[in-house]
Design a protein around this nucleic acid. Structure first.
Lengths: 196, 196
DNA sequence: CGTTTTCTGGTACATTTGTCCCATTCGTGC
DNA sequence: GCACGAATGGGACAAATGTACCAGAAAACG
């Protein structure tokens, strides 16, 4: 630790949060690793997420995984954060959302990209056990509530509607059904209640 | 395979389904192992479910795990089946259910025994990837729909209500809230819709 | 009683895993 | 050009894992 005769193999800084300040180009590799986690998760479940499997999926050597992420925990942590913020952003992008827009996004999320969505939900469940991931998970749920309220759901119904949409997502992940935006919108209208 | 000079160490038969025909007393050990899976799952997540950890949690030697279950897969399979049928039964026991009864069961399920319930849901998600577990998972969801319909939810609303209750359960698992039967019943009434 | 089957618990071993280490290459400043 | 830190990739190794084996205890059954 006090003898830097040569490169000591440690990602320079990257303290905590969201600062990509110190990785100009290898940031792509980081992202590839994170996507690799989802790929592996999708194919083999949580217990298949190993340094080696993730590295193989990302097409990088094993040591890259330990270079960018201190340990398996950091890897999973970062993958959850990556996946949830990604999707939360895509919800937030629906500024003045209609139920139709929301339905389209849901179908894209839970049917078209089913594998990734399943993986994210699996991570979400994992986060139940880890207090330090609570925050990221809440982000997901709160952005769901926000998009519903922007879609015209009255305030005193938003949380109940969010429950139902969450359940709807889980069902879509299970059965791939409803599989079209039109059908999803129909269910959404039932779910959201008399008003809209 | 053709030289039984002594005991060959294999659980006699137990073909498929639910026949405890061949294990008079060591059945308790089987159950202990299955509970051990939930315990480990609760504490350390799916990737912590190893033969050794489960055996330690159940207070039995490692070889017992391999004696009663051919491999890790069978162990997980059986644990899911065990957990879901257990809870499905407890729903089915509510013959002429009121929403209040259902609320009480939900609170007992998702708050009091939160750890076990989380573990079961984690297994449920695992089952998404394994076609052969589909059946057991469907049992869970269909018994949820049945109890709702017995509670007076009109037929054309049952599936939407089931969605919402599923979402409600997930939220209870996350936040431990609503945490009382009364509060849960109130949410249920909103969720189930105008009729009841 | 004896015998046969179920069950026990300890051990052994090949494989996979996380993680560290180091020599080499790449990229960007002077 | 050169030098220096960031990034790479391959190898090594201790620890943990799945699983098989086997000698003996317990129980079931005649």
């Amino acid at each position: 630790m006090g003898d830097p005769t040569s490169g000591d193999g440690q990602p320079p800084d990257d303290t905590a949060a969201d600062g990509p300040t110190l990785t100009p180009k290898g940031e792509a590799r980081r992202r590839a690793l994170l996507d690799g986690v989802l790929t592996v998760l999708e194919a083999g479940g949580p217990s298949a997420v190993t340094h080696r499997a993730v590295a193989r999926a990302a097409g990088v050597p094993v040591s890259a995984a330990t270079y960018y992420f201190a340990g398996r925990d950091d890897l999973l942590r970062a993958a959850l954060r990556h996946a949830t913020t990604d999707w939360a952003r895509s919800f937030d992008r629906l500024e003045r959302a209609s139920l139709r827009d929301l339905a389209e996004t849901l179908v894209r999320y839970a049917v078209t990209e089913r594998g990734a969505a399943r993986a994210q939900y699996e991570l979400l469940f994992t986060a139940m056990r880890d207090e330090s991931l609570r925050e990221d998970a809440e982000l997901w749920y709160s952005s769901l509530e926000h998009v519903l309220s922007r879609a015209g759901v009255p305030p005193d119904r938003v949380d109940v509607a969010a429950l139902a949409v969450d359940g709807l997502i889980v069902r879509m992940l299970w059965r791939g059904e409803p599989g079209t935006a039109a059908a999803t919108e129909r269910v959404l209208r039932q779910v959201v209640g008399p008003l809209s």
